[in-house]
Each structure stands twice: as C-alpha cells, then as structure tokens.
Amino acid sequence: MLSKKQARAFFLGGTLVTFLIFIGLTIYSFSKGNDQTNRENLTADVVRGKEIWESNNCMGCHTLLGEGAYYAPELTKVVDRLNIRYDGNGEEVIKSILMSPSPWQLNGRKMVAYGMTEQEAGDVIAFFKWIGKIDLNGFDRVISPLAKEKMNK
C-alpha cells in the first residue's frame, strides 16, 4: 500500500518533472525555426495598434485568435473579410467604425463610440493585418472568413 512518504515523492517529483518539460517546450516553441508567431513582421504601427486594442479592452466584447468575450465578431482576418464584403474597401469601413463619434450598431448590438484619430485607426488596422498573417495551425480555415463571405454573398 502506498505510504505518505511515497505519495509526497510522487507529488514533488511529478511536479518538478512536468515543470521542467513545460519550460523546455516553451523555449522550443519560441526558438528559431519553430517560432510561428509572425514576430519578424512586428512594426511600430502594429505595436501601437496592440496598445490601442488593450487600452480599450476590445477583447471585452470581440474575440481575437479565438480569445475574448464572444459578444462581438471574431476579428482574426477581419480586413480580408470586409474587403470581400465591401469590394476591397475593408480598411475604410474599419476606419469609419473606429473613428465614428456615435455608437456603431449593426444588427442590434452597440459598440462603444471610440472616435479615434485617423492615425490611431490606421494603427489598429496594421495590428489586424499582422494578426491575419499568423499561422494558426488550421484554426483560420475553420473560422474561414473568406469562405464564409463568399458563401454569404
């Protein structure tokens, strides 16, 4: 029968081993050749866009890379999707939503009116475009905005 000492050894040993493997895998997945985070294309615009994204808690309604609040649309590949819907004018549409002084209210749900400047809206779009080029291990095909828009059209 298992003794208390053996049970403690199982807990401490198992924890140590799995933590070490976890740290090793973290290093592996960000190492050269294995990193698929699109880090090399990070520009100052993209970083500013991320700051705007965070400082307004956009994730409190939308999802991005599948993470967020499921109240407003997924925004991974949003530029591509709106380009199809609005004949290549996706970026203009996003800008007009972000710069609007009154709440955007398509299909009933209100979005906070952020009244951004053109520069700020441009940064957010740069951020979305950078997000859209990340390799998502096939998730992008499932949310498949391009196929979806073609089907809805």
Partner: peptide, 16 residues
C-alpha cells in the same frame, strides 16, 4: 502543467 497546452493550439504557437 502540460495541460496548459490546450490554450496554445490555435493562437499562433508551434504545433507541438
């Protein structure tokens, strides 16, 4: 600990 990986499937990190 290694189950953390389920948050990493589709956010842009390695397939491992």
């Amino acid at each position: 600990v290694l189950g953390t990986g389920h948050h990493y499937y589709y956010i842009g990190v390695n397939k491992i």
